[in-house]
Design a protein around this nucleic acid. Structure first.
Lengths: 234, 234
DNA sequence: TGTACATCAGTGAACGCGCGTTCACTGATGTAC
DNA sequence: TGTACATCAGTGAACGCGCGTTCACTGATGTAC
């Protein structure tokens, strides 16, 4: 084995990527349920059996696409955050939300693969868990850094201590949201679901005849959410 | 033609219902993408071609199921509201939200048929629009009646008049939310998406390792939303 | 009330399609001596 | 550096499956006179 990879090894990497690219395009065109190994092989002028040298089953190919999509979405969120003034917490929240929406609109089928109906007969393997958390972690980081900076307002309400919900909030506070008041921890989870709820509703057309100005509504709502979380502008 | 329907007409109604029932069960078991006319026919001990006497295509059967599901969900929401003290607006909001969640948990695949990824190759016909609005209308009614009763707090912020979003808010105010301040109109749409976002996240397992106490979290968040809309308890 | 005809539910075979996966195989690439 | 062997990419045929939809047909139900 060489320091420079052998041509076989390089070909393997390239063809694996080509299969994923074509599969991603098919996914984008028709959705996950319509994704077929044979169709991908046809487009690459490979026999259908050849694809099995690269992915042991259709499900493994789907898994690879899911992981890539989670990573791409997570990276979009992280980069948007990194580009922004770190002390403008409200602004960071908004740009991260916008990055999620923009990515989703560019990759609607991939987004729905991640956040829509589960693909029938497909069970997500454990490898998908870590990439799936990136966006949420990026959002949490903003709140957590705001808390560390001491700019979050103190909690006005409290979370009933005896309820199981307080345990959930405490666990989150210890893992991702150190220093964030417990009611705000819960509000942060609600904010996270809200952002994805907005994006999903927009992509699936639920706003038809309700909201025409999607971007304005999204921005407006995200700003309101950011304010309700207590995130200050500089 | 008799006053009492002929046995043929009665049989047609019964068999149409039987086909829908079996299809609904298959949907519940495996999801929309896996719904097959032939499988439904098999279970009913009909030839697959016989089903075409009742539904001209698989898509029409799907449409019938979608309409039924929207109606069932809408009815669940309306009944929950009707059972509650009409002057307890915050309570009404909570029970309607709970009704949505309960129905979704009882009929997860039907719920995902309505609010998840679109079925590939299927385009929802116009007949589905009216039933689709029932839940939203039920939610809007609470807010609107609260406004009429004069118990809603006045708007604290305002909606920028020159933006297109103000037009959307005005249109909604005129159709479903008479008397509701414009910022609250937008908050109401956000609240609506939030509730469905919560339910969808719960059903698709996004809360795994984040929130364990789903019901408590849902109730808590819906109460917070109701409060943020200004809905008072009696 | 009885009869002739029209309507319609249901059948069974067929069409044409696509799918995931397996398997024995050929031939090129890589490796160890 | 050359050679023998091992590895592995890719093929093509096949298996077994299920699907939606059409069509000519039989036989029961309904209707008009």
């Amino acid at each position: 084995m060489n320091v420079v990879a052998t041509s076989r090894a390089r070909a393997r990497i390239e063809i694996t990527a080509a299969i994923k690219d074509v599969a991603r395009r098919h996914l984008a065109a028709q959705g996950a349920a319509a994704l077929s190994l044979r169709a991908v092989a046809r487009e690459l002028e490979l026999s259908s059996s050849a694809v099995y040298r690269y992915f042991p089953s259709r499900d493994e190919l789907l898994t690879a696409l899911i992981i890539d999509a989670f990573d791409a979405l997570g990276e979009a969120a992280e980069k948007a955050d990194a580009r922004h003034d770190p002390n403008d917490f409200a602004g960071r929240w908004l740009v991260v939300c916008r990055a999620v929406r923009r990515w989703a609109r560019w990759h609607p089928h991939e987004y729905m693969l991640l956040y829509g109906s589960p693909v029938p007969g497909y069970a997500a393997p454990p490898d998908t868990i870590a990439p799936a958390t990136r966006v949420g972690a990026a959002m949490a980081r903003i709140l957590q850094e705001a808390a560390v900076s001491g700019v979050l307002p103190p909690a006005v309400a409290s979370v009933a201590a005896e309820s199981g919900l307080a345990d959930d909030a405490l666990a989150l506070q210890q893992s991702l949201l150190a220093g964030v008041p417990l009611p705000t921890v819960l509000a942060a989870i609600a904010a996270w679901t809200q952002v994805f709820g907005l994006v999903t509703f927009e992509l699936t057309g639920q706003f038809h005849n309700v909201i025409d100005h999607h971007e304005q509504f999204f921005d407006h709502t995200c700003r309101v959410i950011g304010r309700s979380l207590g995130l200050p502008s500089p």
